[in-house]
Computed example of a mutant assay.
Amino acid sequence: MKQPFGVILAGGQATRMGGGDKGLLKLGEQSILTHVIERLSPQVAGMALNANGDADRFAGLGLPVLPDSIEGFAGPLAGVLAGLDWAAAQGGQTIVTAAADTPFFPGDLVPRLLLAGEGMKNPLVLAATPDAARGRARHPTFGLWPVALRDDLRSALEGGLRKVVMWTEQHAGREALFPHADAFFNINTPDDLTRAEDML
């Protein structure tokens, strides 16, 4: 299988941060998004950013900016669809998504997702970590997604589906378990940003 393309999901509304783009906030000497780009780029064949509104605010990153094609903030699956359509135009077979507010995700994200998807006709895998209460926690913004299912996803979104796991389970999606519970620590609040500065 060809190396997947990478799509960074930055389409959220960041309400707990007071709005705006969380990914453009500074973490250390650079933006959170720059940390995400540096982690993802060695693992993928090429990258794009899913974001809505004026694309010029991301001009300094040098990435194509893909808006949602589904109206009205349809959640992460709309960003996945935008990424799948973009990858299809590049001749890609799969994409791997990463969230724009999660700067410390594993450096072996893509190899582990690919390994978990081996043998699947249409590899569809979400990242998961151990969780004391639930056994494991899924991280639906970090996944491996097949271009072949993009029209199915479009139909599901147009029909009102919004929950990532509902759609992945319809297609016998798998999980890739990452051992560290905080591997996908994301920055939602000012306190989280302070904690991320300490982690850095």
Rank of each mutant, 00 (worst) to 15 (best):
M1Y: 11
K2A: 07
Q3P: 12
P4L: 07
P4S: 08
F5K: 03
G6S: 06
V7F: 07
L9T: 05
G11R: 02
R16L: 14
M17L: 15
M17N: 06
G18W: 06
G19D: 08
L24K: 08
K26I: 03
K26C: 09
E29R: 12
S31I: 01
I32G: 05
P42L: 05
V44K: 06
L49R: 07
D54L: 12
A55C: 04
R57I: 13
A59E: 10
L61W: 14
G62I: 10
G62D: 00
G62L: 13
P64F: 07
V65I: 03
P67W: 12
D68F: 04
S69E: 15
G72K: 08
F73N: 15
A78M: 04
A78I: 02
D85A: 10
G92D: 09
V96C: 10
V96G: 03
T97N: 02
A99I: 01
A100Y: 02
D101E: 13
D108A: 02
P111Q: 05
L113Q: 01
L114E: 14
E118F: 01
K121R: 14
K121L: 12
A127R: 00
A128H: 05
F142E: 03
G143V: 11
G143K: 10
P146Q: 12
L149P: 03
R150C: 02
A156L: 11
E158S: 11
W167H: 11
T168M: 02
T168Q: 04
A172Q: 11
F178L: 03
P179D: 13
H180E: 15
D182F: 03
D182V: 00
I187A: 12
D191N: 13
L193F: 11
R195V: 15
E197A: 14
D198R: 15
M199P: 00
